[in-house]
Amino acid sequence: MKKLIIASLAATGLVAGSFAAGAAANAGTGTVVRVVDGDTLVVSINNGDHTIRLLNIDTPETKDPNQPVECLGPEASKYLEGLLPKGTQVRLEFDAERHDKYGRTLAGVFTADGSLVNAKIAQQGLGIPVEYGGNRKFLPPVQAAYEEARAAKSGLFSESIGCTLPAQLAETTKGLETATEASPATTSAAAGAAAGVLASKVAAAKALRKVLNGDKVTERALLWAGLSTAVLAKHVSNLDKKITAAEKKAEDTKTPKATLEATEKRAEEERKAAEARAVAERKAAEERAAAEKKAADEAAAAAAKAAADEAARNAAAEAERLRNLPAPAPNPAPYVAPAPQPYVPPAPSTKYTGPRCYAPGGKTWRPC
């Protein structure tokens, strides 16, 4: 399986030669000391550290003090660190020019399985093909890997990595479309907010168009996008159309916004007038209720006074009646009960007091 993989990579230029070829005059071997950035590393060769600049590949900037860290620059460095950790044995192949103006050694770097590191970086979409003077030896495999990344929309071609130009194009275009196609606002505030969104989206699109048109400040960013002239022109034309549509929508929003503001102003005035009427009516009702209560209280007080006066008159008349009554008769002497008499038992009777049996006719009797 490993042989099949190497053969497949060799067909695209990602693998070239083997460690056995290290003895050739135009090649050498070494041990990775550290990675500097996405296209530069330090290799120990014959007990001496040498800075190696990978040929025919350029990755986003991370170390230049005069340049900001560029999109996917840190990712390119991390990828190279993972591919060539400290202590990794590598084979170096050289081209016509061995050193650049900074004294770095220019080389193609191969791993133990023969993979060309320069091309593998391009295959991840983390760098672009470049030519250094007459050094073109590794340009074909790097270019092939770069096209593979473009087709797969990897790395710098990805629309899901926010800093890439394809992602910015997708996001900016989608933002313009969404703002332009938004439903009409139903309030002046919503209309104002929609106008603000449109203005911000148009400004972002114009800034991106400036980049696509080759603004010198962001010229390197264009390189990472890998846009051909035809594709670039298509994107610019598409952006121009959407910017025009968004600006027209923004202009068209002004009239409805003014109308909504006038309608809302009238509605607010009517609301305030209705509120004032309600307040006045409530105050009048409270005043009527207070007047009615006062009248009721006064009537109750008058009725209470009349009743008190009537009661006073009645009391005076009763007093006068009582004064005119005749003097009452003297009270009789109090009843004194007689003293109880002593009990005297009756004298015994000599008469027969027992039962009597009468003779016929009832004139005579006899004791029974």
Rank of each mutant, 00 (worst) to 15 (best):
E131D: 10
T173R: 12
A182Q: 11
E270W: 08
A327I: 08
R34E: 13
K153M: 06
K248G: 07
A119V: 02
A250V: 03
T187N: 02
C357N: 12
A230H: 07
I45E: 13
T350A: 11
T164H: 06
T353N: 12
A296Q: 12
R323P: 03
E320V: 04
V43W: 09
D39C: 00
A276Q: 14
L72S: 01
G133S: 08
A16M: 11
Y132T: 11
W365L: 01
G38I: 04
P65A: 00
N213V: 02
P367I: 05
D95C: 02
I121H: 06
D58I: 00
V202F: 02
Q67T: 09
E159K: 11
T111D: 13
K210C: 07
G175S: 07
L72M: 09
A112I: 10
G103N: 07
V36E: 05
A284R: 09
A278R: 15
G361T: 01
N26L: 01
A280V: 07
R266L: 15
E81M: 14
K305L: 12
D297F: 04
A304D: 10
A258P: 08
K293P: 05
G103E: 05
E268F: 07
A221H: 12
G362N: 10
A311W: 09
L116C: 00
K2M: 14
A16N: 13
G103M: 07
R220Y: 10
G17R: 00
S8K: 11
N238H: 06
V32K: 04
A233P: 05
N66A: 14
I5E: 14
Y335E: 10
S18I: 00
G354I: 06
T263R: 14
T244F: 08
A221W: 12
E310A: 15
A7G: 10
A27I: 02
